Amino acid sequence: MTQSFRVGTRGSALATTQTGWAADQLAQLSGLEVDTVLVKTEGDVVTGSLANLGGTGVFAAALRQHLLDGGCDLAVHSLKDLPTVQPEGLVLAAIPPREDVRDALCGRDGMTLDQLPEGAKIGTGSPRRAAQLRAYRQDLVIVDIRGNVPTRLGRVKGVGDTHDDGSVGRATQGDLDAVILAAAGMRRLGLEQHITEYLDPSIMLPAPGQGALALETRTAGTGHAELDQALARFDDLHTRLQVEAERALLNQLEAGCAAPIGALASVQDGELVLDAVACNPDGSEVMRRSAKAPLADVAAAQALGRGLANGMLADGAAVVAGLA
């Protein structure tokens, strides 16, 4: 009889889709079968603004507790949802190759950001996105929204009610001119046809870890030698170094995932290049900085992130971003 491993996930369409993809890859690598365990998190239950929910870790805590309690062998997270400090007893065993890191505009009538009319209403639940939008165009009206990807898409005029399979039914609220979503989630759900513009990082730097998945296990391992070996093979070094630099910067700034901080690391010509932005929530002030270091190991990537953060703090980033 073939052995199986248990993978824990949130129940949203995006969470189950990306967990299913990761689990299928691990099943092929390990030769084991998969059992999926759905876990309801505080972020799925509580209503209201993400910023007011405390932001960081609100989608991960229950899933992590289930993993610690032995309810599953492995948990799959969107890395940008995880706090930057790793809890005792758990380890990020694999970070697979990253999806598209950019933020995506889904506008009515095929419009791009520059084509939206003056005073256009754009929906986002992210202070980081809102601040960078305001910095780029002060005339825009930013509307705080929550909900899964199809629900958010349904807020755009003319898009209508978008189902998990990508099909569109009758119009729902249609009260917004556009919404901003992570391109990675849109692509994983097969909804990229609704993207009217991929926002260049020069306009909007993504959240640290955006587009990356984190496969978390207990520090002692999964209890399946084949799965532990498969996780080691599934880990992508360049992606891990990029996100380690981004998350070290966020941690050093003492900012959570609800803070108006963006960061993006990339590998260029044998170097790790890290770009970061700290924004005043109203978009009135933006601090962008960049640093680079030779491509090496996790410790060097983290040092790059901390070093850039310290430079930004010395220049007043905490005041700019309302973290002071």
Score class of each variant (00 low, 15 high):
Q3N: 10
Q3E: 15
V7P: 05
R10G: 13
T17F: 01
T19D: 05
Q25W: 05
T36N: 00
L38Y: 10
L38E: 12
V45D: 09
V46N: 06
V46E: 09
L53D: 13
L53P: 11
L53W: 11
A61M: 09
A62L: 02
A62F: 03
Q65S: 14
L67E: 07
D69E: 10
G71S: 08
S78H: 15
P83V: 05
E88D: 07
I95M: 05
I95L: 07
P96T: 06
P97V: 09
V101L: 10
D103C: 01
M111H: 06
M111I: 00
G119A: 03
T124E: 14
S126N: 12
R128I: 02
Q138E: 15
D139A: 09
V141P: 00
R146Y: 08
R146L: 09
P150V: 02
L153I: 03
V156Y: 06
D161I: 02
T162N: 11
D164P: 11
S167A: 05
T172I: 14
D177N: 12
R187H: 13
R188K: 13
Y198Q: 09
S202H: 08
P208D: 07
Q210I: 02
A212G: 10
G223D: 03
A225D: 05
L227N: 06
H238L: 10
R240Q: 08
Q242V: 04
A248Q: 06
L249S: 06
Q252K: 13
G270R: 04
A276V: 08
V277L: 08
R288D: 01
R289Q: 15
A296V: 01
R306F: 05
G307E: 08
N310E: 15
M312F: 06
A314R: 14
A318H: 04
